[in-house]
Design a protein around this nucleic acid. Structure first.
Lengths: 198, 198
DNA sequence: CGAAAATTTGACATGACTCAACTGGAGTGG
DNA sequence: CCACTCCAGTTGAGTCATGTCAAATTTTCG
């Protein structure tokens, strides 16, 4: 019986070449796991134990400020990595919460296994370098947009680049992701609507 | 005559181990270069040709919006990498400008040389993975702060974590980095001053 | 010293937030 | 199948943070 191969392997293979032995090695470290809607993959103050790859489902990464308000840093919609990278790489308490918006299927690699994998399959360093570079690039674009665009412009940009975002997550999460209150996002939508009518 | 060893090698060695042969290999690809105050290491629309390590000097990375306003994404103050990562890694036109605030000494690696180095010294993948993870972590914290703190709180946090920032760069750049106008930052400073007096 | 650049000031405008009330489903259970 | 609750979304009034513009002042530096 062959060991089960996860979609994640294809994802890695699309960036770097892997031999069968390497695939096997990686597979042996993968933990397959399911979370229910509302469950936390990781919470603030806990040290992030796993690097988590979303196989299916929807996840949000958010920060809770002193006033108890949520600020969504990122969404994860399948075939992508989530987690508090700072916490995982330095094995210090996390600032971020990773919560499932829907039932979610993931594949995880623990910190010690990750270190072992980096040692045994050094090419993975390249894979993760590429992944993180991409994440860094989009994060830096987000900062730029937050500084140079109004909330309305940011909303239009988001709906344009991710047209079904409104189907994927409730509106108050979109607001939090954009960095505005739900009331104001509602207001923005009304503005846009009345503009398109005239 | 031995080839000159740059400080950058120590920086790399503090993250990964390198043999003498590997050091030599890396050194052979390093381009040492000086820029004058005001010069651009990279400009928007140009494809970023080099990964740039700041040896000494001060650099800012900024974005120019449609209204012609500058938005500073990051500063670089020595012994750190700068550049438009998205542009470099995908070899597509940059969105970011990298400008020297003072005379600046850098070490650069060209794109083809970088690829060659990754091939010949695979450990470098690890080094850059670690570097970018750190950059990503601080970038993500910045997004959080921008969303959850007021301009005044952000300013206080910055002056606390980087007390001599006011000596390092002119105030209007600090304002741009914080995402506020120079007038408003001036206002904030006045507020803080009057608070500390009472 | 003089010009250019950086900073400050103040009046005014506005984007975005707060709060509180209201609407409108989507269960859930009697 | 209705009544009830719960949650997401909307509305509107009032407020505050921050932006805009234009002028005055200070600093920097040739």
């Amino acid at each position: 019986m062959k060991p089960k191969t996860y979609h994640i392997i294809d994802h890695i293979k699309s960036r770097i070449h892997l031999s069968d032995a390497e695939v096997k090695k990686i597979n042996s470290k993968l933990i397959h796991r399911k979370y229910l809607k509302g469950q936390y993959i990781g919470q603030e103050r806990d040290v992030s134990k796993y690097q988590t790859y979303i196989v299916s489902g929807k996840v949000r990464t958010f920060y809770l400020d002193e006033k108890g308000q949520e600020h969504i840093v990122a969404f994860g919609f399948g075939d992508w990595w989530v987690g508090d990278i700072a916490s995982f790489t330095t094995q210090t308490p996390a600032e971020l919460n990773i919560q499932c918006i829907t039932d979610t299927e993931v594949v995880q690699i623990s910190y010690p296994d990750m270190e072992e994998l980096y040692h045994d399959v050094p090419k993975l360093e390249r894979y993760f370098r590429i992944i993180i570079q991409a994440a860094y690039g989009s994060m830096s674009k987000r900062i730029i947009r937050n500084h140079s665009l109004s909330a309305k412009e940011r909303y239009l940009l988001l709906t344009q680049s991710e047209p079904n975002i409104t189907q994927l997550v409730p509106q108050y999460m979109v607001a939090s992701y954009l960095g505005v209150t739900k009331e104001f996002l509602s207001n923005i939508k009304k503005q846009i609507q009345s503009e398109s009518k005239s």
